[in-house]
Design a protein around this nucleic acid. Structure first.
Lengths: 136, 136
DNA sequence: CAGGATCCTAAACGATACTG
DNA sequence: CAGTATCGTTTAGGATCCTG
């Protein structure tokens, strides 16, 4: 069954939402956004777009391994969440540009903070993996 | 355009990113770690453990909707990545505690920064979704 | 209580073909 | 070029049973 966003968010639950722990509720609307943003390709597309406007094929080349289908779907998710703006030029052949919105720029920064941390600490993580084998 | 990069991002220059291998490469080892951390339950378990040590059943109760299987698997991922330390007391019935390692504490903070941002901006995101429908 | 083993469904994903 | 549509495969994830 499909869990769709409620058209109007209750002001009553707004206060609750500002408290920590609301995310743990299964019906939290943030989980849907989180799903898009932390998806396998969502992360990479957001970070890629931090470098600036990209065309569809640019993104496809940059995000190594992504398929047409997944790129299109990921971009649609991010666009519907208001993180990405899609601009289609009515020319032939088609020319479409994708840009982060201010909102998207903000969240992409958070995502990049995470991915950067992983890349910086990847050796330390691998080392921890090794030592965990001897610990138990 | 309000490009407000956190300090951590500036520490990772473009040149450095090329040297340590880019996340955009399909074979980048960081992608595996990223997969665990940004997985549906990985995010929630990490944030949950920020509150301190939890037993298996505590986590299961706290992370609403997670199954035994996925909790066990997620914890094993995070443990093998060196983010979570598992302590099993040899008693009957079993007593097992899970705690964030220093490395895990660090990355959980990044993840929480992301989830917190979403929770705080969820209304703005919904608003962006609405306006994107009327713009077109 | 913690979690392994098994089975199963739903969803994600990829490849290809096709179109404006 | 930028997608959509369709199909087949793979993986995530859930339910249940079982054991130490």
């Amino acid at each position: 069954m499909k869990n769709q966003h409620p058209p109007v968010l209750q002001a009553a639950s707004l206060a609750e939402r500002f408290e920590r722990g609301d995310l743990f509720a299964a019906q939290c609307p943030s989980r849907e956004v989180l799903k898009h943003v932390t998806s396998r390709w969502g992360v990479l597309v957001l970070v890629a777009l931090l470098a600036g406007t990209h065309r569809f094929s640019d993104l496809r080349r940059k995000v190594n391994g992504i398929s047409e289908k997944m790129l299109a779907q990921t971009l649609q998710w991010l666009e519907s969440d208001g993180f990405v703006q899609r601009i289609a030029f009515p020319v032939m052949p088609p020319h479409v540009e994708y840009t982060l919105t201010p909102l998207g720029l903000d969240i992409a920064g958070k995502v990049e903070a995470l991915t950067d941390w992983i890349e910086v600490n990847i050796l330390q993580i691998s080392a921890a993996q090794q030592s965990s084998l001897s610990q138990a």
